[in-house]
Nucleic acid binder design. Structure first.
Lengths: 134, 134
DNA sequence: ATACATGCAAACGATTTGCACTCCA
DNA sequence: TGGAGTGCAAATCGTTTGCATGTAT
């Protein structure tokens, strides 16, 4: 599906900033991008836009289901394309901050069970592992 | 062990603010407290101290192994007594923010394995489940 | 006494918002 | 055209820090 259509489909106007951000996520080497990184990439690519706009666009895209947001640790929040893929965890390297993804149905099932046991319905979960390379 | 001793044992001077904060964690109804909450409790209890001091004391206590820190979601970080208990996950109620704890050795083992498979040594992990009461 | 602690206010990094202006449908 | 989108700067939130003062050992 075309970018324009993807956007219209969500009720968002197909503006230049939004198109560019969407493209960036689809072409970028790294799957996970923080707002600041998106902003810097844009400027680097010669397309100048406001940082505030980046934050707004990212939030809208998350709302629209185009992106998924993950809060890794305290400061940085990263976004990634929402391929409709399974929910996954993140393995963060403590030396360089690199992010690896993993999915484990076993863990997901256990978490749902645990929530259930305590009288809750699991709506979402976050699993982040911090590790040092061997 | 006395509070005074607990502190001295860590190399920290047994000052009034530190004693009070330690007591608060040992007597508070809720196990998990954010810096802001600690601060408000103190003021409420008639003991006036600076918010900056709270942050410093909490950080020192974490260093000293007296408290454990958990970053739940974006903003707030919560601290809890470190009873030397096992590492555990948090189940956060989406309706009222209440925090329940849980520990699952199976999950912990899986996470260590996953990190290992990717060439990392797991140093820490965070598991947070968001759920709605049934 | 003297090194370590504290209070205050200013500095901080990430994110959000008010407002005047610009642009797509 | 008119409402949604944008840029900018100022505001916010949680947290940290510089510096002058206070205090436990």
């Amino acid at each position: 599906m075309e970018h324009v259509d993807k956007l219209k489909h969500t009720g968002l106007k197909a503006t230049l900033p939004r198109m560019k951000v969407l493209e960036l996520f689809e072409h970028s080497a790294q799957r996970h991008l923080a707002a600041e990184e998106v902003y810097r990439q844009m400027v680097l690519l010669g397309f100048d836009l406001g940082l505030a706009t980046v934050y707004r666009v990212l939030a809208q895209f998350e709302q629209a289901g185009l992106l998924k947001k993950s809060q890794l640790g305290a400061g940085r929040a990263v976004y990634e394309l929402n391929d409709g893929e399974q929910h996954h965890g993140h393995l963060v390297s403590m030396t360089d901050g690199a992010v690896h993804e993993f999915f484990d149905p076993q863990i997901e099932a256990r978490l749902a069970d645990i929530a259930h046991d305590k009288g809750f319905e699991m709506a979402d979960y976050v699993v982040t592992v911090f590790g040092r390379p061997r």
